[in-house]
Amino acid sequence: MRTFSLLKGLPVYELKKGKKIGEVCDLSISGSGMVKGLLIKKGGLFKKSLLIDIQDVTSFGWDGVMIEDEDKLETLPNTPEFTLDHQHSLQGKIVMTSEGQKLGILEDVYFLEELGTIVGYEISDGFFSDITEGKQVVKTSDSPAIGKDAIIVKVK
C-alpha cells in the first residue's frame, strides 16, 4: 500500500527491453473509487499521456514501475472518469462521511497497487491545521460516492 504522491514521477520501464517508457503522472479512477490505471507521460518536447491498465503493471518498486510490454500502453480514448491531479480531478474536493460530517479536503489517496483498491484518503483541514495537527487519514472499506461537489465515504 502506498500513496499516489509516492508514485507520481516514478519512471516506467519495459521489462523486455529495459527501456524507460515515461513517468507516472496521474491515476485513472472509476466512479466507484477503484484505480483503473496509471497515466504515463511519454516523450520529449511534446509529451503525450498514455494509459496502462493497473492489471498490466508487473510490479511497483520504490524506484520505478515495471510493465511487461510497451504494447500494453493505450492512447487515451477519452478523458478518464476521474483523476487525482488532472482533468476531473478529485484532489481538492470536499470529503464527507455518509452521516453528513465534513472531514476536509482530499489531498492524496492510499491504495493497494496490485488490486487498484483505494483503502484510505489523506485529508487536509487547511494549512494552519496541517501544521498544528497534521493531516488526517481516513480509512474505508466501502466504495465512495464520487460526485461533482463531494466525495462521500463510510468511515470505519
Rank of each mutant, 00 (worst) to 15 (best):
Q87M: 12
I21S: 06
I152R: 14
I54A: 07
D56W: 01
F128E: 00
L6Q: 08
Y121R: 06
V65Y: 09
G116R: 10
E74T: 11
K19W: 02
D130K: 01
T97N: 08
G33Y: 03
M1E: 08
I94C: 07
V35N: 08
L112D: 15
K36L: 13
L73Y: 11
F4N: 01
D63I: 12
D108I: 07
T3E: 05
L103C: 09
K41I: 05
V109N: 01
Q101F: 10
T83E: 04
L106R: 01
S129I: 00
S124G: 09
L115Q: 14
M1Y: 06
Q101R: 14
L76Y: 08
I21K: 02
D63T: 13
Y110T: 02
F128L: 14
G64Q: 07
L45E: 11
D26C: 10
Y121C: 03
K154N: 15
M66P: 00
D108F: 05
L103Y: 01
L50M: 15
Q101A: 10
S129C: 01
I40K: 06
G92P: 13
I152T: 15
K17H: 10
F60W: 14
D130F: 00
E81H: 11
T132P: 00
D125S: 07
G64M: 07
S141L: 14
S28Q: 02
E113V: 06
K48Q: 14
Q101I: 12
Q55Y: 08
H86P: 00
E113N: 14
G18K: 07
Q136E: 05
Q136K: 15
I118V: 15
E70F: 05
F111V: 13
L7R: 02
L84Q: 03
L115R: 13
P80V: 09
V137Q: 05
K17P: 00
K148A: 13
Q87N: 09
L76T: 08
F127S: 02
T97E: 04
G147A: 09
G31Y: 01
Q101L: 11
G43W: 10
H86E: 06
I151S: 04
D85M: 12
S98F: 05
H86I: 08
A145W: 04
K156H: 11
D85C: 04
G116M: 07
K20L: 10
K102N: 11
Y121I: 04
G64I: 00
L10F: 07
P80K: 05
D130V: 01
G18H: 09
K16M: 11
D125A: 07
S59N: 11
V35Y: 03
G64E: 13
K135M: 12
D108L: 10
K41Y: 03
I146S: 05
T58P: 00
N78A: 08
I131P: 00
L90P: 05
V95L: 12
K42N: 09
K47H: 09
Y121D: 02
L45Q: 07
E23G: 00
R2E: 03
M1H: 07
Q87E: 13
T58S: 13
F82P: 02
T140G: 07
E70P: 02
G22T: 11
G100M: 13
M34T: 10
T83C: 02
Q55E: 13
Q136M: 10
A145H: 12
P77Y: 07
T140L: 04
Q55M: 08
V35C: 10
T83W: 02
L103Q: 02
A150H: 14
